[in-house]
Design a protein around this nucleic acid. Sequence first.
DNA 1: CAGAGATATTGATGATTGTCAATACGATGA
DNA 2: TCATCGTATTGACAATCATCAATATCTCTG
Lengths: 104, 104
Amino acid sequence: MMAAFRALGDPTRLEIFRLLAAQEAPVCACDVVDRFGLAQPTISHHLRILREAGLVTTEKRGVWAWYAVDPRGLVWLRESVSGLGAPVAAAVPDEREDRLAATG
Amino acid sequence: MMAAFRALGDPTRLEIFRLLAAQEAPVCACDVVDRFGLAQPTISHHLRILREAGLVTTEKRGVWAWYAVDPRGLVWLRESVSGLGAPVAAAVPDEREDRLAATG
DNA sequence: CAGAGATATTGATGATTGTCAATACGATGA
DNA sequence: TCATCGTATTGACAATCATCAATATCTCTG
């Protein structure tokens, strides 16, 4: 879970991910390289991190590598964020009497 | 949006955020310091990053600082993740004919 | 097999970051 | 006012990271 947040915490990777998420079909790695002003190894590095975070899938067809958003990773990310929901709001105590509730 | 992902991309900060999200009332900064084996300035640093990312609110009552999850930031984070939804899945093309669709 | 092209890996480097010690700030109480 | 306590800030340092150049790997084509 933290790996996904960390992966999306870089501006280049977030933009790459949004590019992939906006496409209906997998995207060629070369197109990602073309779109960003970064060297090819750098893009390959970012795609690798996105893949290792479970956010992206890759498939090699001949010479080209096709990248797409991993639906499982996306669902899992949504559920993780939804799971961060706070309980019912309460007032701020005036004194420090209470201890912490369990993290869950 | 990227700042929130980056803020949650650190294991300590993610744990702090989950601690705050699990409480019904704001949490004293001193309790956060107690729970983690880190120095007080380090915790203060992490809380600051979470606050600057819009994920956490702070309120000073006398000597103590109370931290809580910012509901707006949480909603915004959820909507951002939901906005990353991929369109209908399609087959991988055999040839590189298509160009990229707009990012949106 | 030789050459070309797309992608991945390695190595190096400058920038960012997580951490702590020291210190400053602000509030409470004697 | 002075001392104490909780918190925030500053400075420094080691670790991590984003980036690129060079190179390796793999695939197709002649």
